[in-house]
Nucleic acid binder design. Sequence first.
DNA 1: GGTAACACGTGAAGC
DNA 2: TGCTTCACGTGTTAC
Lengths: 565, 565
Amino acid sequence: MKSEMASVAGFWTDDDRAMAVAVLGPQAFDYLTASHVPPDGLFTAVGSDADLQTKLVDLVEGSAGWTSAIFWQISRPRSGGDLVLGWGDGYCREADDDAAGANDDGLQRMRKRVLQRLHAAFGGGATDDENYALRLDRVTDAEMFFLASMYFSFPRGDGAPGRAFLSGKHVWILDPSDYCVRASLARSAGFRTIVLVPFETGVLELGSVKVIRESLEGLQAIRSVFTPVMNERKDESTVLSPHIGLARIFGKDLNIGRPPAAAPAAAKVDERPSWEISQASNGPMLNGGRKGLQQAMNWNHPQRFSNGVVVMGNEMDSSHRAAGVLGHHHSNGASQFPAQKQQTPQQLPRQIDFSGGASSRMGFSIARMGAMESENSDGKALCKEERPVVIEEQRPRKRGRKPANGREEPLNHVEAERQRREKLNQRFYALRAVVPNISKMDKASLLGDAISYITELQKKVKEMESEREHFSDPSMLEHRRLVQCPDIDVEALQDEVVVRVSCPLNSHPISKVIQAFNESQINVTDSKILVGNDSVLHTFAVKSPGSEQLTREKLIAAISHEMNS
Amino acid sequence: MKSEMASVAGFWTDDDRAMAVAVLGPQAFDYLTASHVPPDGLFTAVGSDADLQTKLVDLVEGSAGWTSAIFWQISRPRSGGDLVLGWGDGYCREADDDAAGANDDGLQRMRKRVLQRLHAAFGGGATDDENYALRLDRVTDAEMFFLASMYFSFPRGDGAPGRAFLSGKHVWILDPSDYCVRASLARSAGFRTIVLVPFETGVLELGSVKVIRESLEGLQAIRSVFTPVMNERKDESTVLSPHIGLARIFGKDLNIGRPPAAAPAAAKVDERPSWEISQASNGPMLNGGRKGLQQAMNWNHPQRFSNGVVVMGNEMDSSHRAAGVLGHHHSNGASQFPAQKQQTPQQLPRQIDFSGGASSRMGFSIARMGAMESENSDGKALCKEERPVVIEEQRPRKRGRKPANGREEPLNHVEAERQRREKLNQRFYALRAVVPNISKMDKASLLGDAISYITELQKKVKEMESEREHFSDPSMLEHRRLVQCPDIDVEALQDEVVVRVSCPLNSHPISKVIQAFNESQINVTDSKILVGNDSVLHTFAVKSPGSEQLTREKLIAAISHEMNS
DNA sequence: GGTAACACGTGAAGC
DNA sequence: TGCTTCACGTGTTAC
């Protein structure tokens, strides 16, 4: 499965190739250009999480010290073939201004060039106006890792994410130098910790420039922030299973072949209050299919911001979800916002939630992109069903990106309370994710279900533990056998006593051997039993009845065949 | 163990006896007068739950339709002897006014008389002024069951509660006609459903005049309301394990012999805000020991009422917990309330939380007792450590007894919200109770811990399940044995082949028999093995070497001895 | 004194 | 429609 464009002779000029190898590392470059990546980067995500982006932001902007979060989503190449772990969504913390390499013009040019070529190679064509890399004033080390990662994907079991997913076990890497094909990128990014946590629908990859020691708490924190699946009814406006969520997406590729079962869910979207507006895709770095996928990943809560702007995930009437209806309408979202230079970081978290692979990147890059968004609208009209205009909302944002550094005052105590509630809700989502058979969606029921589930599990564990005692205790094993073999008969003759012990054949050590004899129609001409100090020796003299010679090999074959049956 | 007073000839006049038999049923009367009940009704509770009464109220006043709830508490008769399940606490819903029998004067008189005699028989003496039965205008069917139940107790495994406790399994009875010694009472009460749910410290008995079908949800609802053990830091002021909680009790008998370890917990009580006042015991129906016990059961949240009165569970400095310091002070609680005739039911829930066996009864009877409380104070002084005076509190009560019938307006929506919060908190307490290793006491941490605990349990169960597959699969069992017995040697002679199978003795069915031979110094003179279709027969001819005759019996004894070792 | 946690009343929204 | 659930802002308390 070679990437057509990427591998076309001459697509990478020698200069480009050299730069790419330098920036990405030889391994990564080979990986991207040689194989493993679908021809055109087209995916159809298999399952999705409704507000993944939110969670990634929460993780990275939290106190744990992560620099970037990438969710590798189970996806299916549109060209068919096996499932792969492809770019799902991601978020990268804005780096310090004095980050290494940020001001090295040569390096910056190289990075941009490589990102541009990657963009072109993986379906973006040569139109640079869609390439975010060019609009960035700089690409820091971590951002390079992050942006380049978007072009990777990993077949089953391949690469670190694939392995983590296959094993189902998390991987905590404190030395990313031999981490994956992206090891070189990770090294350049200065990553000292990389963690891979498998989930049902993909693998979460966290990177940090700090050394973060593995801990149960840390892992749990990751899981608890991340596992939530369901949205809250009101605040997040929609309650959709992750698999249905995909159908709601604004983008031509995702609705193709989707069953109509998703329609009710999509229709539900229209019930949302009018202040929630649609947000279209913007300047996709990747082409349609990929873009649509990532849009799926970027379905967010309605966000309220202190600047009075509300953006909301895309919505469309179910009757218009047909393939192509909205396809190629790459507008616009960004154009809805008057250019807002000098936004504080706090003001521009995910407010402009671009779809497309670069959307996640916006999480950290938008701050430095300033007014560029307005240039980015391709001018195509929105689907008329959507309400493209911004509705003003006076309330302060529900929860924006934290100031990261500059604490501004006591956070009003209102904000703190908001965050507390949000945290609590996150935990509730997480709890919902780990508790099966949730009767009702309200919190009290959830807690009740969780409690009963816990007691149930405790009971089960207790039972099994006591059960295991029986099995693992050798004397119990012995006992089991004796129970199965209770038939001991004692008969007294003159001065002798005869003891007969009858055991079920299937629980007797020689059963397989006897079965082998029977299967091979072998007669036992003599059998002896010798009891030693700590072993019992059964000796059988056997003979085949027919003319055929019974050889040692044949018998061994027969016995081993029995043994394995 | 005969009840002295109850069985003293002449204590029950013929009339009394006939009435009691009629009201209680012959079985119950016999049970009470003959045995099973400690001489003087003195118990020392073994373990207790801090706000049991609250939970019982929640259960009965909830939507599930229960009529009464009784907690049978593990207790120890003061006279010594085995633990019994004795009356711990209870709550009974107020019956409809037109309840059957409520207006039957003859029946009412009989019931009151019987309750009075029971009261007298079980330690209350003949002073009627302490007998609640006389102060009730009527005793409904369910109330009779409820009040009479207070005089029962069940030794280990005895009666329906005892059996439920012993088995550890809940019992859901839809036909209470042959339920227990109280079957007749239950029938009279019109109970159509009785459920017994065992807990660590006793058995919860729920009765309903409705048919309530068994369901996992219902059961879980019961458990989740009830299991909570920990109190919230602020609102309930104390964080105590149920076993320590007992030490905080106001009553002479309970502190006897309690380890000093409980002292710090008790000391913590004093940290409560000053608006929480003490509430003394009132008009105990039963004598000291029993009263103290039930007081333990009646430790409640601070209650705020719309009449501006706050009552709180008893508190005392740990240095005053010595036996007898507060004993026999049967005041007063009720006297703190100016007579409030015409209180709405909503206004007088458990606000006067009498200790003593009748305290629980107050839950439903106080509404009809009107101004009687003031008559009820015995005038004895409160312990000086307590703050007997009412602190005015303008806020409406936190949560009182629901109106049961007379809905007054939309419940202000404030009350509903209060209840919702309360329920949620109950669940949180319940969760705290089932999750071990709680890192911090705050809700978010609790949820996080619960989540990690669940995932941990899930992992464990998963592991064990796969492990069990190995064990339980018979072929695996076989395999295990073969693995232990892999030593198969095949040797070809002329036209014969010899197979030698060596097995470790301890995994061989005959090992115990062989060991028996060895232990008894018996020689095996001959041994044969016969393989049948599905069994293996070992035959040993054995002989003892010495002069002593080997008999069949001796050998059997030896073998069975080996088998059991 | 600032931070974190909580309970409370309230308006709103879904049944 | 009433009942329930929720999020929010606020006051308060504990550390």
